[in-house]
Amino acid sequence: MSFPGQRYLGPRPNTLIIAVCVLVALPVVLTRPVWTDSAVVLGVYALLGLSVGISYGQAGILTMSQGAFAAIGGYAAAILTTRFGWPPYADLLVAMALPAALAYGVARLVTRLSPLATALATLALGSVIEILIRNADALTGGYIGLAGIPSVGAINTPAGYACLAWGMIVVTVFLYENLMCSAYGRALNVLRVDQARARADGIDVPALMSAGFAVSAAVAGAAGWLYAHYISFLSPESLDTHISISALLMAVIGGAGYILGPIVGTLLFDGLTRLMPAAELQGFFYGAALIIILLAARTGILGLLAGLARRLRRPDATPAPRAANLSPQESLP
């Protein structure tokens, strides 16, 4: 059996899965305005989750600053379009390049440290960015924020944004999967598991980790860009530490090491918590789910499913070592 584009998508199962899911689900979602709006917001979160997946799942940097990177992307878009009259789309480049440059610079300084120290550095970085945004009144509008951010070209309906958001996700997954199939992706996996081995293999560990973090920040910046143009208003509360934490938790719960893990985590958890009565308890559910998933299956929901599938296929075989980009921590000795 063959299908159009098989040559490109055949060896890219994740891209194929997400593309088919989006094509099937989107027409149904677009029939109701509430679902359409949720689809856009979930799309933004899913992009943030993907950025955590690249950073933590692949490069091994536990990031707690994705919300801040998204805020930089969002504010870059807002300021360039409202103050300087840039055409939308053109600002996407800046919204991705700015956080990427910042992430690369900081990561070069801290990735030589232990993973725990790097995680704390990202948390501190996110907090500093948040305070700066709050206080740079002249540039960001301070606490009041920036309003009147124009829509992206011809896309000015929620349905259009839903298509744009999930189109961006399909493209991101495709590029992400491409990266992980490349030598750089394999090198990232080696250094996450064993840095000494990676060095012995001739990998420039700090440079590659920083590049991975920069790519992740660029994806977060794109999420912020989408958010700013869709909501058309941006304030310091829009993309804060809370968002960074949610993105991290959702990615880990879904399976940060799997390409589609963060998207599964986002859909499952954000979808479920939207149905719950008390919004204040959202953090409780996230935290509890994180602890349960760490205890039950450290590789996330997708890791759990993959393990089950493997056991069903070969009931008495011991788990075979798999390609690193498909199965993260579980293949460690």
Binding site: L62, G283, Y286, G287, A288, A289, L290, I291, L294
Partner: peptide, 18 residues
């Protein structure tokens, strides 16, 4: 994995604050 312990405590912190 020490980062997993840290992550679990992070989950607990989020749950408690909530």
């Amino acid at each position: 994995d020490h980062i997993i312990y840290a992550l679990a405590s992070f989950g607990l912190a989020t749950a408690l604050a909530s």
